[in-house]
Design a protein around this nucleic acid. Structure first.
Lengths: 137, 137
DNA sequence: CGCAATAATGTGATCTTATAACATGACACT
DNA sequence: AGTGTCATGTTATAAGATCACATTATTGCG
């Protein structure tokens, strides 16, 4: 059993398959790419993917990247603390890194407080070039 | 001539029409909503809207909200400094506010620097309830 | 166990969002 | 007129997401 197939406690078969597909990938996958990859496993229609994704995102095991309309598996070992607040997305190699930054969270909270805005969900996505892909590297 | 029709210097007819539609709205509009609103003005197909939006976003007169797949007119008077770095999006009334926060920009820059990531575009969208829509108000 | 309630799945159709591809028109300069 | 460039118009289609409804598992409880 490969590493990518671990940590499926509490997951249904479909959710496990979708999580595996995302875990295998080294870049975000769209729902339809996942669907294509799971045809052999019996997947036929988009709702099967979207339903699994919905649960996986709910439980913090998967993150949705709004600026890409794509999904990534959470990179935190046990996915216990869903402390991720930001993502860096490399436009060259496609890799995504999760960022947990207390000062950033704090600043966002201050911004919201200043205007009386109650944040229920924050999206922070940084597009650009990762260290490996920066030309001058 | 209404206020919403001003400031079209350098815009083509289609760009002006799309910007007007967005300026009239008090919430983000999808490309297809804009298309519907501009049928009477002769719009027939999506590319007409998307092409205008592309230019308007490029020039900073319009912002795209990634988490909504929708667009808003820039709320800054002359739209000179494109200093907006974040948006608050009320899930109750739909209103969007632009946030220009130096500390936030600075923190994002520090996060990027720490990992050698070169940011070309940052997306910060806060979903929740605006001051007017918070129950306890 | 037996059965109802709930959750997950399978499936087809539909809806929304976005772009490709190609043709036409308008103007600017020579 | 010739040609370059940019905006526009138009058809078709790609890509992303959801609805509606039927079926199958799972769970909980008498």
């Amino acid at each position: 059993m490969s590493v990518s197939e671990d940590n499926h406690s509490g997951l249904t078969r479909n959710q496990g398959l979708v999580l595996d597909a995302l875990s295998r990938a080294d870049a975000p996958l769209s729902a339809y790419t996942i669907l294509d990859q799971l045809r052999d496993a019996g997947f036929r229609a988009p709702p099967q993917v979207y339903r699994a994704l919905e649960k996986l995102v709910e439980s913090g095991r998967v993150h949705r990247l709004e600026s890409l309309n794509a999904f990534v598996a959470c990179q935190h070992p046990g996915c216990d603390g869903h402390t991720t607040v930001a993502f860096t997305i490399c436009e060259q190699c496609g890799r995504v890194a999760e960022v947990s930054d207390t000062a950033l969270v704090e600043r966002i909270r201050e911004i919201a407080d200043a205007s009386g805005f109650r944040v229920s969900k924050s999206t922070v996505e940084l597009r650009g070039l990762c260290a490996q892909c920066v030309p001058s590297a």
